[in-house]
Amino acid sequence: MSHVHITKSLFVFTMEDIIKYENVSYSYAYDFDDEEEELNNIQVPHVIPFAVKNVSFSVKQGEFVAIIGRNGSGKSTLARLTDALIFPTEGKIYVDSMDTSDPELTWEVRACVGMVFQNPDNQIIGTTVNDDVAFGLENIGVPTDEMQSRIDEALRYVGLEGYGDMEPHLLSGGQKQRAAIAGILAMHPKVVILDEATAMLDPVGRKEVMDVVHRLNKEENMTVLHITHHMDEVVNADRIILIDNGSLVSTGTPKKIFSQGEMMRKAGLEVPQVTKLMDNLRNNGIDVPDDVITVDEAVLALEKILVK
């Protein structure tokens, strides 16, 4: 295992590509050891299903990218590939210029990419919030005297200052996810991936988490990959990656993606309520724009017509 440079700055202000996916494919069927014994126990299907198929795109440093797609479309597989938890069957992924398939770099890639998972209760292991945040730091060999200051800084950032000695199970869902984010921040990553990290939270918890993530993105230029089914969480993203059946369907600004209602429906997703309303009106011959995604934009669009 290579040693991680703890002096790596958290705040790098460049607009270079931080992640690059080049013709990436992945099949879980390949994910077995070659041992004959195991092969005899599994049924190798005739057509090997690819969870991710020939996906290419890149993400710039400091970009907020939302990845959307129905259950089973390959979003989480893509996230795991990015964090070197699994490796491309075909193609290459570069994270901060590191080839994620290079076994020498696995741990550096994982230190560079912090991941928050869906279930808050499955990713907390410490008996106190402090211990939990410290876990990652212990793994990458941060000296004890430096640890506490990093933990304090991270907890302050996510608004959990003073919660260090608390038992994690006493936290709310939103607080648990923020503690998980603190655990990542303390490791000074360049990329944060939220893999449906808001799916199990109530509206208040979701807002708490999204506020922290947006602040990280804006203030610290942190690159964010946000995987979600909540379309209201992606309207403020710089870019949306729409995935279906393992392939990249479309990429563009939220306005561009949401204005294609038919494409969204085909991918098993839905557009914001006001976008759908404008679609319905337009289909009935009323002249309203096709890129309305917020309530205020809808008010503006209707004002033009109602005034007449």
């Binding site: 009106l281 289909n283 009323i286 109602l306």
Partner: peptide
Amino acid sequence: TVEEATRFLLRLLGGENK
């Protein structure tokens, strides 16, 4: 709901009902 909103606005704006 979107359906009610569509009906209401179409009535108000007099859109053609396709």
